[in-house]
Design a protein around this nucleic acid. Sequence first.
DNA 1: CGCTCCTGCAACCAACGGGTTGCAGTCATG
DNA 2: CATGACTGCAACCCGTTGGTTGCAGGAGCG
Lengths: 121, 121
Amino acid sequence: MTATATLPVVCAALGDPMRWEILTRLGEGPMSASALARVLPVSRQAIGKHLEVLREVGLVESEQRGREVVHLAIGARLGTLARELDRIGRSWETRLLRIKELAERPGPDTPKAPEAPEASD
Amino acid sequence: MTATATLPVVCAALGDPMRWEILTRLGEGPMSASALARVLPVSRQAIGKHLEVLREVGLVESEQRGREVVHLAIGARLGTLARELDRIGRSWETRLLRIKELAERPGPDTPKAPEAPEASD
DNA sequence: CGCTCCTGCAACCAACGGGTTGCAGTCATG
DNA sequence: CATGACTGCAACCCGTTGGTTGCAGGAGCG
């Protein structure tokens, strides 16, 4: 599955206003592509393309219901993204703090940078 | 200034791999655009454009140090983004749960059904 | 049975965006 | 003072992509 969507890819998927529009609607309840096209100012095919992008990064799941396909927003995936971003943000702050420390300290001893494994999950 | 960076805009800024590359470097410590251009496979001007995008959404701050301008990644901004995304994700889950409840419950006499009694938070 | 509605795929168009080169200005240093 | 290095701005190229139209296939409903 494409759940291994890299960070920039997921962010890119979220980088389009129209896609947020779609996600918002799908966050309120399942809808079909046609239904979305009726309430959004773009064609059904355009919606379809956006849905494909969103589905590939795991932000949307689709389900064949009767003769139509309904889609819904996956909040858990967004939560995962949020956690990843938060961790990275914290690591930046940590490193900056360490650098400031070094800068303010006369540093008589050699401060070797101990690589901390951060890329995980 | 970090103007009213809307969600999609910030995500779009994070949607480019090269920008992540830059952010990663700036997360390890302050660097100038020229320095970045030396370690990255693109021109200094390209770096400059990316830095402008990142600065506009508050992910990077710049500081004139001597005759050069050094930039650094702002972890706090990433944390803010993460929190926003997490909140939205949770709201989606909540709504979906409510919908599932209604769907599975024949609810002939459940016109009230206020807040979900078990909001898994 | 036929109609209608929903879906998927392909071709095509236009705008945005990432990248490059070139130029001009400024500031620290030899 | 002259040189070198870093910066910002503008023009330009081209690949990506969001959007459109058109067409063909399938599944439910009168």
